[in-house]
Nucleic acid binder design. Structure first.
Lengths: 224, 224
DNA sequence: AACGCTTCTTGACACCGGTCAAACAAGTGA
DNA sequence: TCACTTGTTTGACCGGTGTCAAGAAGCGTT
């Protein structure tokens, strides 16, 4: 986890993000002044469950898995953050230990924003508070979506959903943005189950070669 | 769904709640001025999935189920709100239809706060924004907890968890706060599965008679 | 090109939990 | 109190998914 300088593409990534996009330039700079940037290898840990976390993390590039561990050692992913997404903001406001661990799911560049600073800004700057509220609403919905999918859909249906929502409407194929491993975790599946789901979908015109997914019949997928 | 007057116990309930507790009296009155109160019977619908929802709801007494329906007609609960809890706040900030339906799970009294008013307050009043942020963090954590439980624990373990977290530390028994039906939904189980979980736990010293749950060996439950 | 590592796939199997049906209990209203 | 409705339990069955183990494919390194 080496410390880096914030590049101009990093700044661009930040400014494009849901959270920062709506903040005025000066506030943006203000937040950045208290930020540090580091390069992570796959499996590097940003923070661990039950630790105190004071900072807020921002994915400048790469991928971060948020996972909880059960007492028997198994672990379950509860969220997956890719470029331009922010995590660990709840630790700031609920005075309690982290409820999950954050682990890089591949080589990543992570910005670490000062939590106290951000909290202070949220308390004094309407724009920041507003952006935070929207961000939290969005995150809440994401988690609720996951929960509902888990409870309503079978493995194959969840995979079909994922494919449909990730394949551009005007295209017939796309590349998985990460390893199948990770996708399985995000969907709450064992890797084997993901593999089987793919092979079930082959009957409905889905071709999987490495990370390349081809769809030959969108409607067949929707019907699943 | 009859319209009611806000009683003084209702006011007390509001002021005790996570959200309103921290607001100054004047803001509190301000919000209340735009509120209406109604009595709901079990199964009354507060709003339906895919509808536009402008208001924010507050449970003054009773119980509200938030559930999503799958295309095959099955439905899954994604949250359960009891006395003193607020729901549908995300609809205000994410400009989109409701992602779930809200249904009274028993006779309830519901306050309906004006969303626009609240949104305006959140944008101008630091205290309101702050309260909202904390509320959203809390809700987010709740949903994440549910997701993690679903993914990490078996039915019996989830039930054991529920019992442990609802039985006062200094007591050896408690009453279920709602029908087993509802509990099953909250835990993501079919009623039959809940029933079986209870009967499995009987071996670990749990007695169930109607809604009365008795624990004879806390540690046995924790080990599950 | 050959090696070694990791990721992915496939098969076998067990088990958890959903579903249906029927018996049973509890609650409600006349 | 009885009849009726609604909620709960139990049994039987089966489909879905986790787990273990083995083999295949992919990928980077030498």
């Amino acid at each position: 986890m080496n410390t880096l300088q914030l590049t101009s593409t990093d700044r661009a990534t930040l400014m494009r993000s849901r959270f920062f996009a709506r903040l005025p330039q000066s506030t943006f700079e203000d937040v950045l002044n208290s930020a540090s940037v580091s390069a992570c290898e796959e499996r590097d840990v940003l923070f661990r469950q039950d630790e105190d976390v004071d900072d807020v993390f921002f994915v400048l590039s790469g991928l971060v898995r948020l996972c909880r561990m059960g007492k028997d050692g198994r672990e379950a992913d509860v969220a997956l953050f890719s470029e331009g997404e922010m995590l660990a903001e709840t630790a700031m406001f609920l005075r309690q230990r982290a409820t999950a661990s954050a682990v890089a799911a591949k080589k990543s560049v992570i910005a670490r924003l000062n939590g106290g600073k951000l909290q202070h800004l949220a308390a004094t700057d309407h724009e920041v508070a507003q952006a935070l509220i929207e961000h939290l609403c969005y995150r809440g919905k994401m988690t609720e979506d996951l929960l509902a999918e888990d409870r309503l859909l079978t493995a194959t249906q969840r995979v079909a959903n994922f494919i449909l929502s990730h394949c551009p409407k005007d295209s017939t194929s796309f590349r998985l943005p990460f390893q199948k491993n990770i996708l399985a975790g995000k969907l709450g599946l064992a890797p084997e189950a993901l593999s089987r789901a793919f092979s079930t979908l082959r009957q409905s015109g889905v071709t999987v070669r490495g990370r390349l997914i081809e769809i030959h019949d969108r409607h067949a997928l929707e019907r699943f």
